[in-house]
Amino acid sequence: MYFGRVYVSYKKSVLDPQGEVIKSGLTHMGFEKIESVKQGKYFEIKFAATDMENAKQELVKMIEALLINANTETYRYDLKELGD
């Protein structure tokens, strides 16, 4: 069994309205040194694969098919094999 953690965020140039609102909220609360806030999405996926290389390929396929919209989003991931 493999365990992938996927982090999705907006590409640099894309406006993230929620991030902006959170930033302004935090600033109002007194955290005045904030430069920027970006909100993203986080996924944990457990799945079977034949080996690490196969797991990597499968995970990337899943991410690019559904988890992100390539117009606006980018991602990174980490992947590990789970013990029993």
């Binding site: 309205p17 929620q18 919209n69 117009n71 606006t72």
Partner: peptide, 16 residues
């Protein structure tokens, strides 16, 4: 747009 039949994407409103 998600299906690629039209270009672009609809995103969260500027003011959430």
């Amino acid at each position: 747009t998600e299906a690629g039949l039209l270009p672009g994407q609809l995103m969260q409103n500027e003011h959430p």
